[in-house]
Computed example of a mutant assay.
Amino acid sequence: MQSTPSRRGFTAALLAAAVLAPMATSSTAAAHARSRAPQSGDDCPPGGLGPELTARLDAAIEGVRKQAAIPGVIAGVWLPGRGSYTRATGVSDTATSTPMATGLFMRIGSETKTFTVTALLELVDEGRIRLDDPICAHIHGVPCGDRITLRQLAEMRSGLFPYTADADFTHALLSDPGRSFTPWELLGYGFRHKNTFRPGETFQYSNTNLILLGLVVEKVSGLGLADFIHRRVLRPARLHRTWFPRGAEIPDPHAHGYTDQTLSGKVADTTHWNSSWAWAAGAMISDFQDLRRWAEIVATGTLLSPQTQAERLKVLPTGFPGTSYGLGIFETSGWIGHNGSTPGYESVTVYLPSQKATMVLLINTDISSGGQEPSTLLARAITEIVTPDNIYDNPVPPR
């Protein structure tokens, strides 16, 4: 699912040093999370899938990469009891032809939503908020805020207009991709429109929802969202190469990203575009191995109580066959997790509980191929080979 702006129309396919005195329950939860955090996965030995399956995966990935004109791909599948497969192919920089490598940082777009909602659910576990609180109990000025709950925001069922679908926002961003946006500026683009349906009535992917949830986390915790996620999510999950940038920065080494979401329609290098436009919905950066860990943590609820994780996994129909959406996660063909699309980058991070399998994909373009997201084409091709009974498909049509 995307946090991506697009001249073709924004859709939901789709991305301080204040000290918080932790409650006793949060300290206990953090210790519990550390003890339960998934280990390195020794039951997935490299190359364990065998030469025939490995060759089929190599051919499938390279075929999709060339067909979809993807500059570079990082792909990994871990199948306990069977083995694992990892591959980096293509280039990380088209100007220098530097090869893609598995250790590079990449922007992960809407996968950010899994971190923001995890932060929110930790506050639920502490009893500091409730999922069925109306948003007006925490943030004022939201249209129909007395009838929209935190749960509906996380489920994408609020009816709030997606700010990324506002034409003025599109022009503002694409005219100056280096500019900074505040959360309230983003909300202003959405709130100028009428709500699209009554709260809870249906599913509509909207980054407006996640901006509000990010503000709730900040207000209730007393910390900036980036700081709270770092302290309460990334640290206990032992994700040392995942980051919430303040603006356009991206750590080295990184892959360059390429998009055709420009005013002219020409392909541009988006590596240093300012990600503040997506904030709690799509700003974060990570790498291959951290996302492998995160896939299992999200799907199994390592950082949350069993009761709260059960609420998270109550997925509801999206209107797209075979796909449901829960609290900041989707389920499609048995795979649980999220994908991301932001100008120049796409990703997929999912976990298949029935096989305890993990799949991670990172690519350095978001340019559609045949009307489909290139990351979806890759995920489908890989799962057709390794999990033919659970073939991944994009939860929502692109753009």
Rank of each mutant, 00 (worst) to 15 (best):
I108W: 05
A137G: 13
T242P: 13
A299S: 08
L263M: 11
R34E: 11
P162H: 01
F244L: 06
M1G: 11
L213G: 05
I367Q: 06
S347L: 07
L215C: 04
V77A: 01
Q307P: 07
A381I: 10
F228H: 03
A24S: 13
K66P: 12
W184I: 08
Q152L: 10
F330A: 14
S341R: 06
P80F: 01
T262K: 01
L20Y: 07
T164W: 13
N209C: 07
D166I: 07
G72S: 02
E185P: 03
V267D: 15
N339V: 00
T387G: 03
R235S: 11
A31D: 14
S347W: 01
K266R: 14
E218W: 00
I250E: 02
M156G: 00
G200E: 11
E373Q: 15
A16D: 14
A69D: 15
M106P: 12
T196S: 07
L361N: 09
L153T: 00
R82Y: 02
T323P: 09
T112V: 00
V124L: 08
E126P: 10
I391Y: 07
P143Q: 05
T349G: 07
I139C: 05
G326F: 03
T96F: 04
T112D: 10
L53S: 10
V19N: 12
P71V: 11
F115L: 14
S175A: 10
Q307R: 13
T118I: 00
A33E: 10
L210T: 12
T182L: 01
Y189I: 11
N207W: 02
F181G: 04
H272I: 12
P162Y: 04
I70V: 08
P251F: 01
A59I: 02
P134T: 08
L225Q: 04
T332H: 15
S92E: 14
W184K: 15
G282A: 08
H254G: 05
H240A: 14
V233H: 11
T259S: 05
T349W: 03
A172S: 09
P46S: 05
V360M: 03
P398G: 03
I139Q: 12
G159E: 09
H230L: 12
A95Y: 06
S354E: 15
A299F: 09
Q355W: 01
L352E: 14
C44D: 13
K66M: 08
V73T: 08
K113R: 01
T4R: 13
Q355V: 03
K356W: 06
A281Q: 05
P253D: 09
S3P: 08
L121I: 04
A88F: 02
L263N: 12
W273E: 10
D146S: 07
F115T: 10
Q355K: 09
F161R: 03
D166M: 00
S347R: 00
M156P: 05
A55M: 07
K66G: 10
S276Y: 04
K266F: 14
A30N: 13
L186N: 06
F115S: 06
H256F: 13
F197T: 09
G83R: 03
A68N: 09
T308C: 08
P395H: 06
L378F: 04
S92M: 08
G257K: 07
A379C: 11
P388C: 09
L123N: 00
P321S: 14
N339D: 15
P51C: 00
V91S: 04
L150R: 07
R65K: 05
L361K: 09
W184R: 15
M359Q: 13
